Structures are given as C-alpha cells and as structure tokens.
Simulated assay, not measured.
Amino acid sequence: MAEALWTGVAEAYARSFAGLCAGAIPAVLDGLPKGGRLLDVGCGTGELVRAARGAGADAIGVEPDPAMAAMAGTALDDDVVVAGLPDLPLAESGFDAVTANFVLNHVDDPRAGARELARVAAPGAVVRATIWGSTPPPQAVMWNGLLDSVGAVRPPVPRLPPGRDFDRSAHGLAGILTEAGLAVTAAGTRAWTWRVPAHDLWTGLTSVGGFGVLWRAQSAAVQARLRSAYDALEPRLAFDVECVLVEARVPRS
C-alpha cells in the first residue's frame, strides 16, 4: 500500500522531491569508512550512490520501481537491481555500510524492512536510516493551506495499520532498528533549507505520494482554483526542513 504511492512517478519525483531528499545525503555519508562496500536501499535517482562513490566507497544501489531504477542506472552508468525491502536478492553480511534514505517511512512493513537492512550488513557494519518525523513539513503545511483556501476535499490518505506502523521520531526509528538486532549508536535530527523552483515542485505535488492522492481527489474546478492560488507564490520556494537520522551497527558476535 505505502509503496504503491511511489510507483510510476519517477520523472515527477526526480524534478521535485528528489532534491529534498538529497539534502540529507551529506549527513548520511559523513564519517563512513573509506573504500568499503556500501549498499543504498531505495536509491531513487542514484544521487546517494553517486556521492558515496565520489567519497571513495564501492557503492551500489537497489530500487523497487523499475522506472526509477532505470533512471538511476543511466545516471550512474551502472546496473541498479530492481528490488525493495524486505526481499533483497543479496547475500547476507555483504556490506560494510547500508543506507536507507527516506525508505522505512514508505514501505509496507517497516520492521521487516529494518531486519533486511541488518541481514545484508556485515558484522561491525554501519546502518544509517532517515525518515520524516511526525510533524508536518513546511511544504505540506503550505500545500494544506492552499487546499483549504480553495475548498478542496480531504480524502483519507492510505496509512499503515497500527500494528505495522511506528512512531515517526528518533526514538521510534531507533526502536525498530534495535528490534532488528542492531545496536543504535546515534539518533537525532538534521536540518537544512530546501530550495526548489515552483514549477518543479508543482509536478511533485500533483503526482507523488500522498500529495498526489489529494490532487487526484479534487474536481476539475477545484484543481483550477488550486493552480491559480499556487501560481501566486514565489517562482522559487525555500523550505526549512528537518529529518530524523539514526545510526546503528551490526554486533560483531
């Protein structure tokens, strides 16, 4: 269910929210061992893999959406395996570092996903994961304000059942990594400013994830009013965003 919201939107994501997620990459890669094997799970457009290679890692990516995997493969000049959590076609204990940048908040079974991150990581390896916290991000606050201003309907956005969901916080993410057998070594937040052209963000807001669900639920008249309200904004937008980042290690014994 959660993953289905991100299928078939590769081009729109690349123009919009890929730039948002890329803001966490420096923190995700900071201080990782040089020269080790790194796996990026849910690699999206391949930007984290590219940055990791630039920093000296032997990095590869896997991505569940075929169109996104093809896009990343072209950018990286390398094959990207089409696969996603919790079923990666990779041997256990094969990587010195495993990253999941905004992935565990978009899978159908986050705990099973965390166990798979642990499975493919070697003893002593670092696992780093990011998610968006429970506080609505500023781009969502902006979008919700526009929806309210034009009288938009609010259909329910698909959510995980309570038994599979987890608290979207540093404590909650650390908890599911601990349940997966990992030893959490750091848990906190990272902040940055995301700047995006309004026309690129519009592409994402009207197609990707829960934003797309809300857009598609509106009548043609409401969509037209929403577009007019959006066009009145600045041509380039800036949002002060924050994510949760947790680091854990695979026990050596």
Rank of each mutant, 00 (worst) to 15 (best):
A4G: 03
A4S: 15
T7C: 14
T7A: 12
G8V: 04
R15K: 14
F17T: 00
A18G: 10
A18E: 09
G19R: 03
A24P: 11
I25N: 08
P26S: 10
V28H: 03
G36R: 12
G36D: 14
G36I: 15
L39A: 11
C43Q: 11
G44W: 08
A51R: 03
A52M: 02
A55S: 12
A57R: 05
G61C: 06
E63P: 04
E63G: 04
A67P: 12
A75I: 13
L76W: 03
D77C: 09
V80A: 13
L88K: 00
E92Q: 05
A100W: 03
N101E: 11
V103S: 12
H106I: 06
D108N: 15
D109Y: 11
R119Q: 07
V127K: 12
W132P: 00
S134I: 13
T135Q: 12
Q139W: 10
G145D: 02
L146D: 02
V150N: 13
G151F: 01
A152D: 02
V153G: 05
V153E: 07
V157F: 00
L160W: 13
P162W: 01
D167P: 01
G175N: 15
L177Q: 04
L177M: 11
T178M: 14
V184P: 08
A187D: 14
R190F: 03
V196S: 02
W202G: 01
W202L: 09
G204R: 01
G204C: 02
S207R: 02
G212N: 01
V213F: 02
A221H: 06
Q223T: 01
R227E: 09
Y230Q: 04
A232F: 01
E234L: 14
E234A: 15
E242W: 10
V246N: 02
R249V: 15
S253G: 10
S253M: 05
